[in-house]
Structures are given as structure tokens and as C-alpha cells.
Amino acid sequence: MLLPAVIITIIFRYVPIGGLSVAFMDYQTVFSFFEQEWVGWDNFTYIFNLPGFSNVLWNTFFIAVMKIIGNLIVPVAFALLLNEVRHRLFKQSVQTLLYLPHFLSWVALAGVLVDILSPSSGIVNNVLGFFGVNPIFFLGNPDIFPYTLVMTDVWKEFGWGTIIYLAAITTIDPTQYEAAVIDGAGRWKQTLHVTLPALAPVIILLTVLGIGNVLQAGFDQVYNLYSPQVYSTGDIIDTLVYRIGVVDVQFGPAAAIGFFKSVVSFLLIVTGYKLAHRWAGYRVF
């Protein structure tokens, strides 16, 4: 019975690894896979020698890490808060509303965001202005742009994480809370000593899996929101590859970048897993 699953996994997960060899080819679409010219490390040399590549790499890393952190803290916090809500209908509608932005595409959202984040007429700056804050150019100021990316991404995606954590919370044995109450624990102490420790494995699992995304800063989002003004802090590997690709379809360099990202992700996942094991005694295998 296991065989079909194994075969499918091999076909769709292991065989494709062969495609990594494109990273070492001067790939021309008119020729078949086996007629391609091998160029060794040329594609890698080309990518790493692109002017400003280190800057782009740093932007990618910075934005992705901030997103991982934001997408860890905010959903946990919201799950804990929502868990305390007694009114069922209210709880569920909030949960659904938080989840909704997840379904919007960045193309549509970008148009909306340019308007609501506008320093002159946007609602966000109007509200801030009410409190005496000078208009902030969220999308045009290179110092602020990465944080705008992180905030909008967390806003869009945290509803999803919240649902996972809420689900995890419901699996906690109620007798533990009863025991805590008998020991004299209030709401806060219960959260601190029962809920959070029970959530730890899920948090660690999601974080370990998330670490693999450390070079995925989110192409859709960045591409639709950035502009030449914020290239210095907003240009990421994927947008750079896209621009290279649009000028000319260069499969070799694109595959090389993909290969590079995979290797980095793999190393980080292994490291993250080892750390999780050491610190939290958590193992997947």
C-alpha cells in the first residue's frame, strides 16, 4: 500500500533534484537536456560577481528573518488572546477576519497599499498625523521600506498561524488548567506555565520549518511594492533574478541561484533542528 506513495515521492521529490544540473549548464531551450553545454561553475561566478549582489543577499536575509520573527510572535500572541475570548461567535468571526487577507493577491493589495500608505492622503498617515506624527513615506523611504514589507506581510499572513496555534491550544488537557487553578495560578500564570509550554513543540516545529525560508523574502510582495527609490534596501534575490530573466531568459543563472538558496536553506534547517533538539529536546525523527 505504501508503494504508490513512495513512487510518487520519488518521482516528484527526488528525480527533480537532477534538474539542479541545469545550474552547471549554458542552458539553451532549442537543444534537448542532454545536448546542453556544461560550463562548470560559470553560472555561480556570474551571479556572485553581479555588482551589488552582496547588498541584495543581505536585503533578502534581513527581510526574511524579520518576517520569520514577526510571523512567529504575532500569531502566538493573537492565539493566546483569542483563546481567552469566551464569546464563541465573536472568537470565530475574528479568527475568520484575520484569516481573510491571506487570500488576497499581492497584485491587488499593492494597489490598495500605495493608497492607504500614502504620506499625503493615506489613512495610515492621517491617523498618525492625528497623534502629531509627521507623515511617513512607508513605500518610498529606503530606511523604512523593509519594515513596511515585514509589517504588511505579517498583517496578511498572521491569521493563518493564529489558526494553527489555536488548534494546538485546544488539544491541551483541561485537567492541567484545573491543577494550576488549585495551585492558585491566575490567568496570566496559567498562560505562562501551562499554555506556552504546551505550545512549545508547535512553535519550535514551525520555526524550524520557517528557517528554511531564510532566503525567501517573498517575490510577489516585493515585486509589487518596490520602486527604484528603495532598491538599496528592498531589492531581493528573487527580484534580481526576475529582472535578469525578463531581459533574457537565462535558465542557467536562475537554476544556480535556486541551487544556492537550497543549499543555504538545507544547512539552516539542519542547524535549526539540532538546536531545537539541544534546547527543547524536540525531535521530528
Partner: peptide, 16 residues
């Protein structure tokens, strides 16, 4: 095996 590889990289061929 060639077909399998094709599935993965969308754009390579089987001229032969």
C-alpha cells in the same frame, strides 16, 4: 527518466 526530468524543469526536451 528523461520524461521525469522534464516534469521538473518544465523546459527541456526530448529531441532524440
Amino acid at each position: 527518466s528523461l520524461v521525469l526530468i522534464m516534469l521538473t524543469i518544465a523546459a527541456c526536451g526530448n529531441d532524440t
